[in-house]
């Protein structure tokens, strides 16, 4: 290994330790509301979420992930006032913490979740998602996360990559009608199929993907500021692991290597992003004053102002979502070598 790489590895190691210290320092920012973590058994797949005012999505969110095989949800509620907390506290497989501290200063919730992962995630497969992200992966209709993680275990793979796919309605967002118990994808059935650009992140070595509908509509003037879409949501956790920026990047860096440079052997998934439900308008309005999202909130003022109007994101080239097989055929995700056995 050249000296430069060694030096970088050393710096990253210290960076990771600083993050761990920061997580430890902020551990008292969250207070337990309903702690059911005694129910956690070895081999359970855990789901970690930070959220705020998500009643429009939660019923279907929990239903979706229970079906995929999540056994326990560890959720941090960041000051909801729409009944989210009470709803969650009543769920038998949810442990709930609450906080009123700044989401942005807690690295967008990663410090809070980091402390929960540190305590409860060790050796578990941990899924870290937002309440508006619905994971899908190859064969998701017939296989679950248990099958997927056993496949990854058999390969000795510790992390699973997924791209965020922004789903949007046909017609103005303002006109969407949505029932919280129903699948939001009924209303948000459309997506951009192939306007994504990839490059390798020079420091964290993850594949940095931008593009999609937000890039096409909101960030044409400043594409470098467009939201990052690549994520590493599912990880075989070790207490020493940390997320760096949302779930886009991790340390140690090898966990970011969820792609293949020669063949197509890595199975990957898609996070269907249900952000563009009508509540995005009030949330964007709130965000303009609260300024809790994105590193440099002032840059995004335009974006939130446009969103608050409930714009129409649909265009003639939009694709209608039909299922995982479509996403695999389009090359948004891959079956990789799932179906073959390494263990012989």
């Amino acid at each position: 290994m050249p000296a430069g790489d060694l030096w970088m590895a050393y710096r990253m190691r210290w960076k990771r330790r600083r993050f761990l210290f920061r997580i430890w320092r902020k551990r008292r920012q969250i207070t337990p509301v309903q702690d059911r973590t005694v129910l956690i058994k070895p081999d359970m797949i855990l789901c970690f979420v930070t959220l705020r005012n998500e009643m429009a999505r939660l019923p279907h969110f929990l239903q979706h992930y229970r079906k995929l095989g999540i056994s326990h949800f560890l959720i941090v509620d960041n000051g909801s006032d729409d009944g989210t907390a009470a709803y969650l506290a009543a769920q038998k497989d949810v442990s709930l913490w609450s906080t009123q501290h700044s989401y942005r200063l807690a690295r967008f919730g990663m410090d809070w979740l980091g402390w929960l992962q540190w305590q409860h995630g060790h050796r578990h497969w941990c899924l870290t998602v937002d309440a508006d992200e619905l994971l899908t992966f190859p064969y998701a209709d017939s296989r679950d996360l248990g099958d997927l993680t056993r496949h990854l275990d058999a390969r000795g793979i510790m992390s699973f990559g997924a791209i965020m796919l922004d789903m949007y309605p046909k017609g103005p967002i303002a006109e969407v009608r949505h029932d919280p118990t129903k699948d939001p994808l009924d209303a948000l059935a459309w997506f951009d199929a192939a306007n994504y650009r990839e490059k390798i992140h020079p420091v964290y070595q993850n594949l940095w993907i931008q593009g999609g509908v937000r890039d096409r509509v909101f960030f044409t003037a400043r594409p470098e500021r467009a939201p990052t879409l690549s994520k590493v949501p599912l990880v075989r956790w070790h207490w020493r692991h940390v997320y760096v920026s949302s779930t886009h990047q991790m340390l140690p860096r090898r966990l970011n290597h969820v792609f293949d440079r020669a063949d197509d052997r890595r199975v990957t998934g898609v996070l269907l992003h249900t952000k563009f439900l009508p509540d995005i308008m009030s949330k964007s309005q709130e965000e303009l004053t609260r300024r809790q999202h994105f590193e440099n909130s002032s840059l995004y003022a335009d974006y939130h102002q446009q969103l608050a109007q409930g714009p129409d994101l649909w265009c003639l080239q939009s694709q209608r979502y039909t299922g995982w097989a479509q996403l695999a055929a389009l090359g948004l995700m891959s079956q990789g070598d799932w179906d073959q056995d390494d263990a012989i």
Binding site: A194, N195, Y196, R216, P223, L316, Q317
Partner: peptide, 29 residues
């Protein structure tokens, strides 16, 4: 067209941010 197949935008900023990927996407789509 203002948007080509796959949602490829005709915006010059977007294109010039990663021109190689623009072309590979265009040919793929």
């Amino acid at each position: 067209a203002a948007v080509y197949r796959g949602g490829l935008s005709d915006n010059a900023h977007l294109r010039d941010y990663n021109p190689k990927m623009f072309l590979t996407n265009l040919v793929w789509n």
